[in-house]
Structures are given as C-alpha cells and as structure tokens.
Amino acid sequence: MQIFVKTLTGKTITLEVEPSDTIENVKAKIQDKEGIPPDQQRLIFAGKQLEDGRTLSDYNIQKESTLHLVLR
C-alpha cells in the first residue's frame, strides 16, 4: 500500500509499505529515499509519536495515510 510522509519543509514523500511493516522499517525506507538517518527521524500520526517496534497496523495506519516527519 502507499502512504505519504510530509516533511517540515512541506515536501511529501510517497512510500510503498505493508501494514505489517514496523515503524523502524518505514524509517529505513525514508533513509533510502531521503538520506536521513533513522535516529534523527520522528514520525507523527494523528498527533502521536510512533514507536520503532510497533507496526503500521498497530496504529491503524491505512493506505494513503499521511505521516508527519520531524527531525531531531
């Protein structure tokens, strides 16, 4: 499924993921596309910060959901 990741600069990254993918996994995909190390990434969905060990389905993230990427 496709999800979108919006950065603070207003750029939107499109990722191909599975509901069973972990947040860690998603961060690795963002690193592949954008070169941002996962340890600098914070992903936010519905106002919650997403934890590395959880999966997209844990957070009920469905196709075409938009996550927000904050760098630390």
Rank of each mutant, 00 (worst) to 15 (best):
Q41S: 07
I23P: 04
T22W: 11
G53D: 15
S65F: 10
A46D: 13
D39I: 14
K6S: 14
Q62K: 09
K33H: 14
N25T: 09
I61V: 14
K33G: 06
G35Y: 04
Y59Q: 05
S20T: 10
R54E: 05
A28K: 05
E51M: 10
T7Y: 04
E24S: 08
Q41K: 02
L15F: 07
S65D: 04
I36H: 12
L56N: 01
I13C: 02
E64G: 06
L69D: 01
Q31F: 11
A46W: 05
Q2T: 14
G35S: 07
D21Q: 05
T7H: 09
K33M: 09
Q2K: 09
Q31L: 04
Q49S: 12
T55Q: 15
E24P: 05
V5I: 08
Q2L: 12
K33N: 08
L50Y: 01
F45G: 03
Q41F: 06
K33R: 13
R54Y: 12
G53P: 10
H68F: 04
V5A: 05
G53T: 11
D32F: 13
A46N: 11
R42D: 13
R42W: 14
V5P: 00
E18M: 15
V5S: 01
T14M: 10
K27M: 06
E34N: 04
D32R: 11
T22S: 13
I36K: 03
I3E: 00
I36Q: 03
F4R: 06
I3F: 01
Q2D: 12
L50V: 07
S57K: 14
K6E: 14
V70W: 05
Q31R: 07
P19C: 02
V17Q: 09
I30D: 00
T7S: 07
R72I: 10
I61L: 04
V26P: 00
E34Y: 10
S20H: 12
D39Y: 08
R42Q: 08
T9I: 11
K27V: 03
S65Q: 13
T14C: 02
F4T: 05
K6P: 01
I3S: 00
N60K: 04
F45K: 04
G35T: 08
Q40C: 02
L69E: 01
L43I: 11
R42F: 13
R72P: 10
R54D: 09
Q31C: 02
D52Q: 09
I23G: 03
L15R: 00
I23E: 01
G47I: 02
I23M: 11
E18T: 08
T9E: 09
I61N: 00
